[in-house]
Amino acid sequence: MNIVVCIKQVPDARTVKFDQEKGTLVREGVESVINPFDYNAIEAALELRDAFGGQVSAVTMGPPQAQEAIREALSLGVDKGVVVSDRAFAGSDTLATTYTLAKAIEKLGAPDIVICGKQAIDGDTGQVGPGLAVRLGIPYVTCVNEMEILKGRNVLRLKRMCEQGYDIVEVETPLLMTVLATLNTPRVPSLKNKMRARKADIPLWDVSAIGAEPGRTGLAGSPTQVVSTSVPTFDAKKEMLEGEPEEQVDALVTRLKEAGVI
């Protein structure tokens, strides 16, 4: 079975800082890590490979440094990986990103299962998974938090979380799913895979390598333009109430009524 997992390198949320004046992320000195949900996607891919056989390929779009993310995926047991990297991809919105990733995945060979994290913690759109499925012409299931393999039939029974509850759906391969952190507990790397990852040759695919039309990638292929970003202001008022507990409660109720909350 040909399983593809899409991952993204994102700034490490523990070290990231925000430039309040410019309204942008300060990227200098911030480490890059694999998007947290993507670890669950990798784990799901590995479990599916263990059950069905076949191989797992990891794909990421990003600068050449994103090879480190692929290397980490390899250390977890992913079989091979590729970085889709070209200056022409810079500034991609989700429309251009899904186009580019779909081209890369098609070059890898027709996938049976594609897995993405629910969303990336930097852009937070959650659109790339579904968009990619449409490009590839396969069904998709988002926000999966349980997965059961019905082996004889190449069917997955998936529990998809919705705002009001959950659906249980059965989908035949090929399919794409996006996964939640609650789906599984990602494994730790193994020493043998770490050593293999260190020596691995991770190709960089540019526009021509994936056969993309130049006008459809990067800024040129992105109808979404970021006009400005800003930090939301937090201007809640604070007031300390004095007096006995009963008086404080009365005062609080009065204030809440005045504010129209109750």
Partner: peptide
Amino acid sequence: TEEQQMIVELTRQIAEEK
């Protein structure tokens, strides 16, 4: 060596995460 460093990193990761 690089391999020994990997052993340290991996076992520390297991200690912290697991």
